[in-house]
Design a binder for these strands. Structure first.
Length: 114
DNA sequence: AACGTGACACAGC
DNA sequence: AGCTGTGCCACGT
């Protein structure tokens, strides 16, 4: 039979998110909105975060933060301080769950990958 | 099928 | 300057 996917919809969106996140250079960070914008769903930044719920191994979700540079998703890590730990290890300074010099370390997929 | 939820973003107050 | 409401799309129940 035709290879019809039983899934209601292919998680193409999620897959794209993972791909982009994996492409984030070390020592850099990006925001959900940036990824969403790169995927074409600029307003649907929520989906990016939701996609991270299934973040498979190899996806540095700790490099993805909100537009404020705040580690909003760190509470979802195990343990939660793992996110900050990884960021500091990559050379990113974090103060009060916020990226220091976020604008300077900001990585725009729409611009860098373009 | 409908409602509620979710790691966001933006406008309005 | 912080809170609220709305938009967005997908997933869970």
């Amino acid at each position: 039979m035709a290879g019809k996917k039983n899934k209601t919809s292919e998680p193409n969106f999620f897959k794209d998110v993972y791909e982009v996140v994996k492409l984030i250079p070390k020592g850099r960070v990006t925001s959900y909105g940036a990824i969403a914008n790169y995927l074409g769903t600029k307003m649907s930044s929520r989906m990016v975060g939701w996609a991270m719920h299934g973040c498979p191994k190899g996806v540095p979700a700790h490099r993805v933060v909100n537009r404020n540079g705040l580690l909003t998703g760190k509470h979802h890590f195990k343990p939660p301080y793992m996110m900050q730990r990884l960021l500091e290890k990559e050379g990113i300074q974090v103060s009060k769950d916020k990226i220091v010099g976020f604008a300077d370390k900001y990585w725009n997929p729409s611009a860098e990958l373009l």
